[in-house]
Design a protein around this nucleic acid. Structure first.
Length: 799
DNA sequence: GCCACGACGGTACCT
DNA sequence: ACAGGTACCGTCGTGGCG
């Protein structure tokens, strides 16, 4: 007996039972029950593209002959698809077992006349979602047969899918159970090792506001901790589990430690299953969405040191001043001291509260990213922007009958990018910053840029039927609309619709916020398309396309600059799609009109600086806005590889100079800081320099400071890996600077080389701004000269 | 052998 | 693990000089 149910999709997976693959859809139904839908009707397949002169039928029959009874090919048929926009006859090969796709793929490749095997690398569970148009966090109606509760699945009801799920009208997200967790490990030296270092605390917090800490006994016996935690997860039964760096630390550690103690990490919704680590280092928990919030922190470029405390502070989740802070190397001391141990427990609690708070800030966007791209939530965060876009493109290709190109290894070919103008150095008053709106996406749409519309060498074309890119001469057919043009138009129109829908709700309503996150997710994809085309690993890679886009971009901004100058606007600076011009409303209006009417693009005033300062360097400036806010762009103050003290000093100088013009005050300030530094009044934290380890230690050809510091960590038993940020300080002594670099936690304050910080951090950062005003290193170090004010330096080039 | 200097490696930023 | 353009630091090799 069949019935219809509505459900919201959480995730998909598959299993092979009795030599038959079963798609498993995890979801939540209308009444909030967790359900599983099993679909036994779907089979894996791939395509075979014959060479142009080969016989499709012949290839098809050769493929049929490959079928082996144990794992048969069940269908070989000739179908019409498109490959880079051109209609092609291809062979669709269907098997029973997903693993069989890999085996047959290799054999089919060897057949004469086969150009390529396509779509043989799409995972079965994702193949189902693509083909059935299913997206996480969207609602569907589906005809099913109930199988009641099933012992193997920890859900309220299991159904067999009878016919394909159909989209149901959108309604709000159901209440989902969310669990944040965080572990603390006891170890006295180096990085913790699961085979010996116990997990002394696991802290959890859920969406009901409940908090728990599972704490080891005095003997640091953590068996109980793990058992209680595992039971808690099963008991609370979360849909989403969040952690901070949990994919790389907490989960692997829990799994290794539990196995070492002979325990199973029985936290999934599939009886008998355990969390598994995928190739990309992401941990998968069947039936639940495991989200590592660190992945999202990595994308927040404003935050330089991405510890949980820093990110929580930045996002307004928890102030560092209002929580327990314990340096990680003191954790064992806190544990061993009975008086301090409660503080350590409190610290773990503050960590998990921060983690949960981060989830509240980040998950709404992450969920919409999953909703738009169709990538399950537990994977979407671990992916780079390129892969997120690529999944969106794969779905678009399927919907258009386009074959998904293979990923091929190819060398990167560089090409010219954007224009950056030489800034007019000095202080300028009343400057408007104009920005082209979505310049590259709009170029791609206007000129129909893409790998399928590109006229390649040897191909014929009629001159009036193509767009020709300036300088580089690449040609793109005007018709029909290409793959990227169609995708981008869709993205832009979807975003427009979302933004219109948003107007129906007050800005503080949940509906508004949800839609706002959604439109942001769409924007990310649109903005990534140009870079994607120039990415050698992209399936739809097209260097000529990317090259043409930047060429058109250069032409565009040149024409805007020329017109601005013709109008009598001073062009102070410009980079790629932005122009800094004197704030003359009437002339700017004319410029905007010109760009819209004559060039066919949109340009807008992004901001107006009351005062803005440039040195001779490109990509570096500081501006004062009408409301008193200050933008610092490019300078040391916004770079993560300068010590906090130098950055603070530079920020302060910029503020003094832009707001008061009093350079003397700035000098006095620098001198004061130098005095404090010499007197040892500056805490070590403000002197730590953080640099990313971008490759393996052995691969470095020069002894850079952070590399030396990382080697010292390694010697002490710490794991250092690619991507880690190494925090180091410079100590007194002789020899190369790099040899005097030590991890900050290995150094006592009196060992610090104060002179290094003065000469190589404070003074350079200060002079970057102040040398334009004629101030020298000697003055900063205390030699008096005549007083000048900012206003002697205004509008330098106009006498 | 020492020093000045430029090339280069390396990192992080901007749009 | 989306692109190219750019600034700037410290190391390292090189050539000139003694």
């Amino acid at each position: 007996m069949t019935e219809k149910i509505k459900f919201m999709l959480l995730d998909s997976s598959y299993e092979v039972v009795g030599r038959e693959p079963i798609i498993i859809l995890w979801g939540i139904d209308e009444s909030g029950r967790r359900v599983v839908l099993l679909d036994r009707r779907f089979r894996p397949y791939f395509y075979v593209l014959p060479k142009k002169d080969a016989s499709v039928e012949h290839i098809a029959s050769r493929i049929r002959a490959l079928s082996k009874p144990k794992s048969p090919i069940i269908d070989v048929s000739i179908v019409d698809r498109k490959y880079f926009g051109r209609p092609r006859k291809v062979v669709k090969v269907t098997t029973v077992l997903p693993e069989a796709v890999r085996e047959y793929r290799e054999e089919v490749k060897k057949i004469d006349g086969v150009e390529e095997v396509l779509e043989a690398d799409i995972r079965f569970a994702m193949r189902y979602l693509i083909d059935k148009h299913l997206y996480p966090f969207r609602w569907y109606e589906v005809e099913v047969e109930s199988r009641g509760r099933q012992a193997g699945y920890r859900v309220e009801e299991v159904y067999n899918v009878v016919s394909d799920p159909q989209p149901a009208p959108e309604h709000k997200l159901p209440d989902m159970r969310i669990l944040a967790f965080d572990i603390e490990v006891y170890n006295r030296s180096g990085s913790p090792r699961p085979e010996k270092d116990p997990i002394i605390i696991i802290a959890v917090k859920n969406d009901r506001g409940e908090e728990h800490t599972f704490v080891a006994d005095d003997g640091k016996n953590d068996r109980k901790v793990l058992i209680e935690f595992i039971d808690y997860v099963r008991e609370y039964d979360p849909d989403i589990i969040v952690g901070y760096n949990s994919n790389k630390f907490d989960w692997p550690y829990i799994i290794d430690r539990a196995h070492h103690l002979g325990l199973r990490v029985d936290v999934t919704r599939r009886v008998g299953a355990e969390p598994t680590t995928s190739v990309h280092g992401h941990v998968s928990i069947p039936g639940r969405l495991n989200v590592d919030l660190y992945d999202y922190a990595e994308e927040m470029h404003e935050i330089k040191v991405k510890t949980l405390e820093e990110v929580a502070e930045y996002l307004g989740v928890m102030k560092k001043s209002e929580r327990v802070l314990i340096p990680w190397w003191e954790i064992p001391d806190y544990w061993d001291d009975p008086k301090k141990r409660p503080l350590l427990v409190r610290y773990a609690l503050d960590d998990v509260r921060s983690t949960y708070g981060l989830a509240e800030k980040i998950l709404p966007f992450a969920i919409q990213l999953s909703y738009i791209t169709g990538i399950p939530l537990d994977q979407v965060g671990a992916m780079g922007v390129g892969f997120r876009l690529e999944w969106y493109l794969k779905r678009a290709a399927y919907d258009m009958g386009e074959l998904i190109p293979n990923r091929v290894e190819r060398p990167g070919e560089s090409y010219r990018g954007a224009i950056v103008l030489e800034p007019l150095k000095g202080v300028h008053e009343n400057v408007a910053v104009l920005d082209f709106s979505s310049m590259y996406p709009n170029i791609m749409i206007k000129y129909n840029v893409g790998p399928d519309t590109l006229v390649r060498v040897g191909e014929s074309y009629k001159p009036d039927e193509v767009y020709v890119a300036p300088e580089v001469g690449h040609k793109f057919r005007k018709h029909p609309p290409g793959f990227f043009k169609r995708v981008l138009e869709e993205l832009l129109s979807v975003r427009k619709k979302i933004r219109e829908e948003m107007k129906k709700y007050p800005p503080d309503s949940p509906e508004y916020r949800l839609l706002d996150e959604r439109q942001k997710a769409v924007k990310v994809l649109a903005n990534a398309t140009y870079g994607y085309m120039g990415w050698p690993a992209a399936r739809w890679y097209c260097r000529e396309c990317a090259e043409a886009v930047t060429a058109w971009g250069r032409q565009l901004i040149r024409m805007a600059i020329d017109y601005a100058k013709k109008l009598g606007l001073r062009v102070i600076y410009g980079d790629t799609d932005s122009l800094f011009v004197t704030y003359d409303e009437e002339k700017i209006r004319k410029l905007i009109e010109f760009v819209e009417k004559e060039l066919g693009f949109e340009i807008k005033i992004d901001k107006v600086y009351k005062r803005v300062f440039f040195t001779e360097a490109k990509k570096r400036y500081a501006g004062l806005l009408a409301d008193g806010r200050i933008d610092i762009v490019g300078f040391e103050a916004v770079r993560g590889d300068w010590c906090e003290l130098a950055k603070d000093v530079q920020s302060k100088i910029v503020e003094i100079v832009l707001k008061t013009g009093d350079t003397e005050k700035a000098i006095e300030y620098v001198q004061k800081v130098i005095r404090e530094l010499k007197e040892g009044k500056i805490p070590v934290e403000k002197l730590v320099i953080w640099k990313t380890l971008s490759k393996k230690l052995s691969e470095y050809s020069v002894e850079a400071a952070h590399v030396v510091a990382a080697k010292r960590m390694l010697e002490k038993g710490f794991k250092v890996s690619v991507g880690d940020k190494i925090g180091y300080v410079i100590v007194k002594g002789s020899g190369k600077l790099s040899q005097r670099a030590y991890p900050y936690f290995m150094v006592k304050p009196n060992q610090l080389d104060v002179d290094y910080y003065i000469d190589h951090q404070i003074i350079p950062a200060a002079l970057r701004i102040l040398s334009y005003f004629g101030i020298t290193e000697r003055r900063l170090k205390g030699v008096a000269v005549t007083r000048k004010s900012l206003f002697d330096f205004l509008r330098p080039s106009s006498r």
